[in-house]
Design a protein around this nucleic acid. Structure first.
Length: 843
DNA sequence: GAGCACTGC
């Protein structure tokens, strides 16, 4: 997106924007606005006082000033001309055949007189969208910060302009040209979120009746009565999640069974259930309950049950042999269906089957976006019921021209808002793509703020992203002090997962990081991509929660309308399907290629997943689930991790293996590396790796040391380990311990035989083996012949054993293997004789 | 010698 577009700025701050001309190159023009002060100070810096006399120095300074002024004027002339030419071309392109105004004709004449075009080679630095070429996509993402021609003056100017506008009287900025992020107000949308969420108890009844959904209660109940499947489109804020299950309860559906409502996130399931319990005046866990991983707050009495989608999927598996399926439910409502998580996608098909088997069963699919027609088509033309949301209007502003550097533009816009809108009337939320970007923005903003001093109201910068320590995260929820303003710099976490009160202004950069997966080599990467229209509206809605809001989109209205995708690519189409296939097989789905997916995943990915499961012994030659596969499917882990646990029985080291599994499954957020303490953190990390034991054993050491220190937070702090990740690992481990007991695998410990532990790991991870290349330059994976290096964070990065197995292969700046352990090639033949030939392992 | 959006069982 945003490619093939042309931009030009005018000094009156009215840039024009037009579609690209055919054959135009990708070279873009951008005129940088320079201030006189800036030029002067630069020229002054050039006059270094050598050993010359003071008089001579004085003359030199004068000459240099003069020369500098001349250079500046020449440059200015060039730039003005360039603007003029751009302007004329734009006008002529836009109004082809239309008689030009006199002003335009004059401009044209000047251009003709000059008779030449000025070469400008300022390029856009917008990341290219992911186009299937992983390398290119990633390079583009990386390019973002490496400005080929950094120009602080431009940003300086952006900010200066904003200050000027606000404080014209005592302005000490002198700018010749004026430019700021110029936004066009094009629309006013209704968008919002659950406004009613946090209201005090006494007002509940009244407020409930004011909800838009309340007016539709009877129609809605009739629709549910008349149709087995109903698609509900209700913008967030309509109260559907909280009210519909209660309506169904009042209508008597709970007499036939529970009403279940699925959510993609744990927090949502918990908080919504708590809210409904309050509204009904019952104790949470009795009539109203929730069920999520690690926590089941339901009882015999529960009739309204909120749960995560994964949890319902789990119930499907447990109830498989019972008839009829899901007999304890009379209604299931799949909420936030538009998010299209892997779990909801699988549920769609399973629930569709249930509706066919049980005519008394009701299914409600609830979505916030207009892809309802797709849902309706999938469920045999189910009727669509639309509920308006109750929310405050949000004013949407687009840039007139595409912004070449969204980070700079986001910072400039945020500061403009701060300078021009009265402090105290609302906070600012800026959406960026990741931690690095947020940190960069934080540095720039605080620098600017420092320069301005006390001329402006206080601006409190709050970064927020998932990997941020929770203490720092909590700061974002502190109420803003009077007379100050909060500037929240957030990733997508603020789009759905958490809601910050008091936001009135949203700045949307238009990009987000997306995971993509290559089934061929089994490699993952994170790529910056344009967001979808649905996502853009969700972001905008974050500003209209408590009052009318404003959303500044750092892209043009044209881009929004024509270049953004309407909806997200379902996760099932861009992920490793190992677990999905194992789950479906355990649910008795035999023919996966013809399974009724709403959007089928790529066949190649399905085939790769089947091959992997066959290699792991989870499926037999006919593609049926084996005994091993059944046991594996019981574990909430990736198939290779599950296999490792099953195999640990043979090596008598189940205790160690489940510790390693839980550490691996919390991901790569175990260690932290605070700014300025990188070396200390790296040393701490290395200390777990004594004896070059490999990263898996190092993770085991971390867990065991933490446990020996009574699971202490202090210990985490001292060893640069993230307490939150460790507590999560412990929760997972507890769960695994129960599941292992149920599977009848004895919890034996064999901590002194590292080879036994490594063999158990190899039993699951043999497909991820790699050998050092002959000339010592990196590794190549044994099966797919993929070149890769050991990730520098690995304890084995400098050891370079001849054979290794890795947990995952990721593409960042290079292909890296993360979490690596040394391997003896003969183990491959021992644990997977069906997978490796003797020649391959070089024995 | 590098860099991790967000979920979930």
């Amino acid at each position: 997106m945003l490619e093939g577009r042309r931009i030009s700025y005018e000094d009156d701050g009215a840039p024009t924007d037009c579609p690209p001309k055919a054959g135009e190159t990708r070279t873009r023009r951008r005129t940088l606005m320079m201030g006189i002060r800036e030029t002067h100070s630069k020229s002054e810096q050039q006059t270094q006082p050598d050993e010359k006399s003071p008089e001579k120095q004085q003359i030199d300074v004068e000459t240099l000033r003069k020369r500098s002024r001349q250079e500046y004027l020449m440059m200015r002339e060039k730039k003005k001309l360039e603007q003029l030419i751009n302007d004329v071309e734009d006008q002529e392109y836009l109004f082809q055949g239309v008689d030009l105004t006199s002003e335009q004709r004059l401009k044209r004449q000047i251009c003709d007189l000059v008779g030449k075009k000025i070469d400008c080679s300022k390029e856009y630095r917008i990341p290219e969208s992911y186009d299937g070429n992983r390398r290119k996509g990633f390079d583009a993402a990386l390019q973002r910060y490496t400005d080929p021609d950094p120009d602080p003056a431009w940003e300086e100017h952006q900010f200066g302009k904003a200050i000027m506008k606000h404080q014209k009287k005592n302005c000490d900025y002198e700018f010749v040209f004026e430019h700021q992020i110029d936004s066009v107000k094009t629309e006013l949308i209704d968008s919002g979120d659950r406004i009613e969420e946090e209201s005090p108890l006494p007002e509940l009844e009244n407020e409930k009746k004011n909800l838009p959904i309340y007016a539709y209660k009877e129609q809605l109940m009739k629709a549910v009565d008349d149709h087995q499947v109903l698609v509900i489109v209700g913008e967030t804020g309509s109260g559907k999640t909280i009210q519909i299950p209660q309506f169904l309860d009042e209508a008597g559906y709970t007499r036939r069974g529970m009403i279940g409502c699925t959510q993609p996130r744990r927090v949502a399931a918990m908080s919504v259930a708590a809210r409904v319990a309050r509204e009904k005046g019952v104790k949470l866990g009795n009539e109203v309950g929730y069920s999520i991983r690690f926590e089941d707050r339901t009882s015999q009495k529960t009739v309204l049950k909120y749960m995560t989608d994964g949890r319902l999927l789990h119930e499907f598996r447990q109830q498989l042999r019972k008839e009829p399926i899901l007999a304890s439910y009379s209604v299931i409502m799949v909420d936030e269906a538009h998010e299209r998580t892997v779990n909801t996608d699988i549920l769609f098909s399973l629930l569709k089957d249930v509706t066919r088997a049980r005519p008394d069963f009701k299914l409600i699919i609830s979505s916030a976006t207009l892809d309802a027609i797709k849902f309706s088509d999938y469920f045999d033309s189910a009727p669509i019921f639309t509920i308006p949301g109750r929310k405050f209007p949000v004013e949407i502003l687009y840039t007139r021209a595409p912004e070449p550097d969204y980070l700079a533009a986001a910072v400039a816009t945020a500061l403009q808002i701060h300078a021009t809108e009265e402090a105290g009337d609302g906070d600012i939320l800026v959406f960026l793509t990741g931690q690095e970007e947020i940190e960069a923005a934080e540095v720039i903003v605080s620098e600017k703020i420092r320069k301005v001093g006390t001329k402006m109201a206080e601006l409190i910068i709050c970064p927020i992203y998932a990997n941020l320590p929770s203490e720092v995260q909590a700061r974002v929820f502190d109420p803003t002090p009077k007379g100050a303003r909060k500037l929240v710099l957030a990733t997508n976490i603020a789009e759905t997962s958490l809601t910050i009160d008091g936001i009135k202004y949203v700045v949307d950069c238009g990009f987000a990081k997306m995971k993509s997966y290559s089934p061929r080599v089994g490699m993952e990467s994170l790529v910056v991509e344009p967001i979808t229209r649905a996502s853009a509206n969700q972001r905008a809605g974050r500003s209209g929660r408590t009052g009318p809001g404003k959303c500044f989109r750092l892209y043009t209205a044209y881009t929004f309308a024509n270049e953004l995708d309407e909806n997200i690519v379902p996760e099932i189409q861009r992920t490793n399907l190992g677990n999905v296939v194992l789950t479906l097989k355990s649910l008795g789905v035999d023919d996966l290629l013809h399974f009724d997916f709403m959007d089928p995943p790529p066949a190649e990915a399905l085939v790769k997943a089947l091959e992997l499961l066959y290699a792991l012994g989870a499926l037999n030659k006919r593609g049926e689930l084996t005994r091993v596969g059944e046991v594996m499917s019981e574990f909430p882990l990736d198939p290779m991790l599950s296999k490792m646990i099953v195999a640990s029985e043979k090596y008598g080291c189940c205790d160690e293996i489940i510790s390693i599994s839980c550490m691996l499954s919390v991901g790569n957020s175990i260690f932290c590396r605070p700014k300025g303490k990188e070396i200390l953190a790296d040393n701490a990390r290395r200390s777990f790796h004594m004896g070059d034991v490999g990263d898996h054993i190092a993770l085991l050491n971390v867990y065991n040391f933490w446990k020996d220190n009574n699971f202490s937070s202090q210990w985490c702090y001292e060893n640069y380990v993230q307490g939150r990740s460790m507590r999560r690992a412990r929760d997972i481990r507890d769960q695994l311990e129960r599941l292992v007991a149920r599977a009848g695998i004895p919890l034996l410990s064999n901590v002194n035989d590292l080879d036994a532990i490594k063999k158990a790991i190899a039993s699951g991870f043999f497909p991820h083996s790699a050998r050092l290349q002959k000339h010592g330059d990196g590794y190549v994976t044994v099966k797919h012949k993929q070149n890769a290096c050991i990730h520098p964070s690995s304890g084995l990065a400098e050891v370079c054993p001849r054979w290794v197995m890795y947990h995952e292969l990721v593409l960042t700046t290079k292909e890296f293997m993360r979490q690596v352990t040394q391997l003896k090639p003969e183990w491959l033949l021992e644990v997977a004789p069906h997978y490796y030939k003797v020649e391959e392992v070089g024995i």
